[in-house]
């Protein structure tokens, strides 16, 4: 490669990073056909315990309270819409929030895992984001890892007497960041570097996605905190004392 060609190549790569990734990061969903079969099976299997527990939780909630199914359906639709909306980004473009923090704080992580799977199926069928073979991997990162970290961070912050606004912002932001780390790990596991192995590949994927995902995580944290505090102001929903589903029971 000549020096000029190298420069052109580098320039186009940088342009891709700044313009292609922010618009099409699609909340870090792995596209259809991107993962090898063994990885697809691995992530599907890893999701099973969470999905099973989520299903048991859903069954229990709907048995106790008939209204819960309708509220959960609304939550699912809201999560879908939230993840399909573009949020303002500092890189000059826009991207989509994961919505995991929002859902996990309001409805809890177990129910969110089952809602998450359905939302991911809709994203694949209606928006062609993600896919069916990558559903296991996407479920693990978006509907399991993200919500659990968000919920854990929120509960920990509240236990440490951190303010509600900061707790929500941290939980949504860290949940988003963790989702991005898990996706990078999934990609590096599927495509390890021939020289440095999984770790070097993960460094590569983390570095590439960091350009957009770190600012997005911060913005999503702020937006989630602002939205939840506005919800508490305009309605009588209190997320701390009792969940929205218990409140309606």
């Amino acid at each position: 490669m000549t020096k000029k060609e190298k420069k052109v190549f580098l320039l186009t790569s940088v342009l891709c990073l700044f313009f292609a990734v922010p618009q099409k990061a699609q909340a870090m969903l792995i596209m259809e056909g991107y993962l090898p079969p063994k990885d697809c099976v691995l992530w599907f299997v890893l999701c099973i315990p969470f999905i099973a527990a989520g299903f048991m939780s859903l069954k229990k909630i709907t048995a106790e309270n008939k209204k819960a199914l309708i509220i959960l359906a609304m939550a699912g639709a809201f999560t879908f819409v939230l993840s399909s909306l573009k949020i303002p980004s500092v890189t000059g473009s826009s991207s989509h929030p994961t919505g995991t923090g929002f859902g996990a704080v309001i409805f809890g992580p177990w129910v969110m895992s089952i809602i998450g799977v359905i939302v991911l199926v809709f994203q694949a069928l209606l928006l062609a984001h993600g896919g069916i073979t990558t559903l296991g991997a996407n479920t693990f990162s978006m509907a399991v890892a993200g919500p659990f970290v968000s919920y854990g961070v929120y509960k920990l912050c509240r236990k440490l007497k951190v303010g509600k606004f900061i707790s929500v912002a941290l939980s949504a932001g860290l949940g988003d960041l963790f989702t991005y780390c898990v996706t990078s790990f999934q990609l590096s596991l599927a495509y390890p570097s021939p020289n440095g192995g999984i770790i070097m590949s993960m460094v590569k994927f983390l570095a590439i996605f960091a350009v957009t995902q770190i600012p997005l995580a911060i913005i999503e944290g702020i937006i989630t905190a602002l939205a939840l505090s506005a919800i508490e102001k305009i309605s009588d929903i209190d997320f701390d004392n009792k969940g929205i589903l218990k409140m309606e029971a």
């Binding site: 609304m74 809201f78 909306l85 949020i87 303002p88 913005i219 929903i237």
Partner: peptide, 19 residues
């Protein structure tokens, strides 16, 4: 940022009531 947060909260409360 502010508009997005307000929109999300309004949509959430409205859709909750609608449900």
């Amino acid at each position: 940022i502010n508009a997005m947060a307000l929109m999300l909260s309004s949509v959430f409360v409205l859709s909750y009531n609608k449900s």
